[in-house]
């Protein structure tokens, strides 16, 4: 197995609210190996994007903070770096792309200049123009010569996202964080961007941390997956295993409620209840109020997670694995 390049241990991130600090990422641990695509999946408000922003230290400092935990990237703890040192890591060794490419491109700057921006910022030694052309061609953008002179409004959404990926890959980062990179795109374009990201991983050996709410994208792209719920990781496993035999009741419910062309003939399933408000979290397991097999222990004590290759944060793993727990729910 490849070496681990990113090891996050017990990360806690809080954002400032009127009533004080709110824990949006709570004791999150995960790792990414060289050349691996790792998925972080969850619904809105589960803390997956805040986890990514924490890695990059990309938030307004008084409004949000990494309270504790380690972010070991290669031989350094990113949580301990100064703002200046972090700036040298960001864009060079770790790069990030986002959901809406339009908001991250400067409308007054040509695509070529924006793609070359990280090269300039990190004092690229070679020929920046040649490197830009090379990147544009690598992204599968048509007519590179013309493309570098275009402005964002002159190209399509898919091309904008390609340009953004080119800019992210400019300094050959070892880790690419992709936060919902295809959510704003049409399905036929999404398929192309996903293919592109997979190709880039194969060619450059960069690892990708893929953050998404879409289990289809996870299934198609990722080697391993971490499932988040209400600020915590509830389960992680290889993608194949997680989809074959989900162990956490939430993961089981989530998979079951996903609608796809293949599953559409089956009966529609919905997890009852709603995601808890982070201001009023249950004391025990955060999923207990919606869980069909929650018992007294679940309601009092937060479940323990072992940090091995496939872990699950549930007191009743055996019971969850033994029978179709959500079937019971439907029957009752």
């Amino acid at each position: 197995m490849n070496e681990i390049i990113l090891e996050v241990r017990q990360l806690v991130t809080e954002i400032h609210q009127r009533r004080g600090w709110l824990r949006v990422v709570d004791d999150v641990s995960f790792n990414v190996r060289r050349g691996e695509i790792v998925g972080l999946v969850g619904e809105s408000g589960c803390g997956k994007s805040m986890t990514a922003f924490s890695l990059m230290q990309l938030f307004p400092t008084p409004a949000a903070r990494v309270t504790s935990g380690q972010i070991q990237f290669e031989d350094r703890d990113l949580a301990k770096l100064t703002a200046d040192e972090m700036r040298r890591v960001r864009g060079a060794q770790i790069a990030m792309i986002f959901q809406d490419p339009a908001t991250f491109l400067d409308p007054l700057m040509t695509l070529g200049n924006q793609i070359a921006e990280p090269l300039r910022a990190h004092n690229f030694a070679g020929n920046a123009t040649a490197r830009t052309r090379e990147l544009v061609a690598q992204m599968g953008l048509p007519d590179p010569e013309l493309m570098v002179r275009r402005y964002p409004h002159q190209v399509s959404g898919g091309q904008k996202q390609r340009a953004l990926i080119a800019s992210a890959m400019a300094c050959a980062p070892k880790l690419l964080i992709a936060d919902e990179p295809t959510t704003a795109l049409d399905v036929t374009v999404q398929a192309q961007i996903l293919d592109l990201m997979r190709d880039l991983r194969d060619q450059t050996g960069a690892a990708i941390l893929l953050i998404t709410h879409d289990l289809g994208v996870i299934a198609e792209m990722c080697d391993r997956v971490y499932v988040m719920y209400a600020g915590k990781i509830v389960e992680h496993n290889t993608t194949r295993e997680l989809f074959r035999a989900p162990r956490h009741p939430y993961t089981q419910g989530l998979l079951r409620s996903t609608v796809s062309l293949e599953s559409a003939s089956a009966e529609l399933f919905a997890i009852p209840g709603t995601v808890p408000n982070l201001n009023e979290l249950p004391t025990g397991c955060r999923f207990a109020p919606r869980c069909p097999i929650a018992n007294a222990q679940c309601k009092q004590e937060p479940p323990f997670v072992a940090n091995d290759a496939s872990a699950v944060a549930c007191w009743n793993v055996e019971r969850a694995a033994a029978s179709d727990i959500w079937k019971l729910e439907i029957g009752s």
């Binding site: 399905v187 036929t188 999404q190 289809g216 198609e220 792209m221 194949r240 996903t258």
Partner: peptide
Amino acid sequence: LTLAAPVPDPARARPARHLMGDI
């Protein structure tokens, strides 16, 4: 379109997609 939508099943082979370019 039927080929483009990602299927939540990692065991299935990814279909070859021929659709190029943007709308």
